[in-house]
Design a binder for these strands. Structure first.
Lengths: 210, 210
DNA sequence: GTCCGTTTGTGATAAATTTCACGATCAGGG
DNA sequence: CCCTGATCGTGAAATTTATCACAAACGGAC
């Protein structure tokens, strides 16, 4: 089992997990690769291949057991054994939305603190999470062994803030800023810029014939 | 010039545009494919290939003119000629964050209305945008010729709401819900589920050796 | 116990995407 | 004017990713 798992496969694994959780909620016990493929835009062989990257989890002639597969996928994605502590940097509107969203915990993520440089925001508590001064980020990250950060600061502060987070030992950044980040080797960035998402859509709705 | 532009290329085009806008802001006039590639994780040939899918925009020995390339990319992505009206469905925290974000307009998107079913939310104005009852979505979408929607409702309402939007003529949905959507042929969906993004990161930080 | 319809796992194949490598073009300097 | 260093555009090659297709395995019916 090697390290070179393609990004698209990992994205699909998340998507499978979403569907399986829904099926489990509805009481469904078994599911086939064909069904699972139907929910997202993919073929059944694709589903089996994605899973085959990590082992054999189904039974021929039967399919997959929903609960089993949920556990398998959580293990693969790293959210089964542990709860990941996460910090949010930048206590603006996005931060507010993140801190009041109750769904992270049950999916393996736990927002433990928010940071900002604005004294007016520092000291507040949003959704049970304290907004702390940016200076405190290093000790908090180290003490709580935080490896993931969500970056929700204005574009012009993003790169500098990211650099600082990496110095504190952050290894994965979910980036809501519009800027691309420059991070050291070994730090992963996932881009969540909403405008880019909208551009994907406007591109597809725009005719590209000469 | 055909229709089969790979998704990864479109994502990178957005990323190039982000960098170019930054460079323009700093007063930079010219940029090479190598520089542009340096900002995102890619090779210089990759940059040139992506652009070559649509034409020839550089000058050999010189590189690309920043302003020109910005216009080219906006044209390609569909945000140069027109301003895209967008509706947000679900007036929760995410909606609040979207409506108070001032950056959409300058990138070609214009949130024209928000919808909700909760009477307590209807009638408010957030960031200059009115929250309207869900019943009004069909006439508003048709009158303003809205083709893009941002879906920010709870997971259990997502699929039904998406179906309804498609009936109103929506052709592209940016989906913040955790559920995968089932949409008719010809409707594009871009997934923005934050948990999935975090899972991408936790996967990469999790060791995958036997 | 055997047959039948179903579904997985996977080798082989096909398709898509990325990288390589080089000729063509350009600006600047001597 | 011609040489030099830089850079694009792109055919060809390499690599990665997705699909096909079929043997193996399973449950249920009879």
């Amino acid at each position: 089992m090697d390290h070179n798992i393609p990004d698209p496969s990992v994205r699909r694994l998340s998507a499978y997990l979403r569907q399986l959780e829904r099926l489990a909620g509805e009481g469904t016990r078994h599911v086939s690769s064909r069904q699972l493929a139907g929910y997202i835009k993919a073929g059944d062989a694709q589903v089996r291949r994605d899973l085959a990257l990590f082992g054999q989890f189904g039974r021929r002639g039967v399919g997959y057991e929903v609960d089993d597969l949920i556990n398998v996928l959580r293990t693969i994605l790293g959210t089964r054994q542990r709860q990941w502590p996460v910090v949010v940097v930048g206590a603006g509107e996005i931060c507010h939305a993140l801190l009041t969203y109750r769904g992270f915990r049950q999916r393996g993520f736990d927002v433990v603190a928010a940071f900002d440089i604005d004294p007016k925001k520092i000291g507040r508590t949003i959704g049970g999470v304290d907004v702390l001064p940016m200076e405190d980020c290093a000790p908090v990250i180290q003490r709580l062994e935080v490896r993931l950060a969500i970056l929700a600061v204005p574009a012009d502060a993003a790169d500098e803030t990211a650099r600082r987070l990496c110095e504190c030992g952050i290894e994965g950044i979910l980036n809501f800023a519009t800027t691309g980040l420059e991070v050291p080797e070994g730090v992963f960035v996932s881009e969540a810029d909403i405008t880019s998402h909208l551009e994907q859509l406007s591109f597809r709705l725009t005719s590209h014939r000469p």
